[in-house]
Amino acid sequence: MTVAVSLRAVSRHFGAVKALDAVDLDIEAGEFFAMLGPSGSGKTTCLRLIAGFEQPTSGHIEIFGERVEGVPPYRRSVNTVFQDYALFPHMNVIENVAYSLMLRKVPKAERLKTAEAALDLVQLGGYGARRPGQLSGGQRQRVALARAIVNKPKVLLLDEPLGALDLKLRESMQEELKSLQKRLGITFVFVTHDQGEALSMADRVAVFSDGRIRQVGTPEDIYQRPDTPFVADFVGSSNVLPPDLVERLAGVRRFASLRPEAIRLGGEARLTGTVVARSYLGPVTRLAIEAVGLKLHAIVPSGADLPGEGDTIGLGFDSVALHLMGTEP
């Protein structure tokens, strides 16, 4: 196993603000890695440190075994797809894509051929003569992608790559990015605040909050076995049960996560609560329930006999569904 990017005790402080605080992270070569977190959690700073747009206040960063502190972005074997795409408005599409080749003094014919091949790869063959302003959001995104992979970087960084696209386009781009990564074999590191996107695309996910990494693991790990109440709540809006309740239910004084879909309405009731809101989501219905002073969510199959607002109901769940976490909030 080769480590593509490695961060050791990396901090980035802006004055008193600790955007990133003593972070350790290893990203493996060939991996599709997601950095997930709310805005201001430090995920974008982390990406910018790898790209070289920011310098760490302390700590070390290695890219394929090479220390890169003090190495400018233009000497790093890393390329970036920007959130706003950052296409050069005064160049047409092919010039944008061929920019890094032009800087490397690749002969014109060859660089046009290579750039055209990269455009083909993102299904934009024949769009070379257009200006970025004449393209749709999705097309610009593909141009930004082609421009970033044309020089075959060892690591491709993507900053909220799908953030500006509408839902349908986003779903098809997710699949496309995934297959592109498989074909190129490049390490992809992408930043997102959308947990669904992170879980569906990434091989592994790091969850950021307040400048620290709260958990690193496979999507399944993160979703099923969150380490902290923050991760449980942020990734998939799990119900976080406080230690005194968990002590009553399971006999240990720790936080626990209970997934909304693990809650049953029939059978043996372990908690009693009142329905305060009901939202119909198609095949399933989400209930907001007030129980033991908490607001819990349950996702149950839609049906005719569901309780309405104001009804008092019993809640059941299997003991294994109660995932125990630490004692820290």
């Binding site: 074997s77 490397r104 290579t114 091949a117 790869l121 992979i149 075959k152 970087p153």
Partner: peptide, 21 residues
Amino acid sequence: MSALDTGWTPPPQSLAGRLGD
């Protein structure tokens, strides 16, 4: 995709480049 198979190449070094650094 053969045209992209050359791998990452660093930009050429020059005197101006060193000043840029």
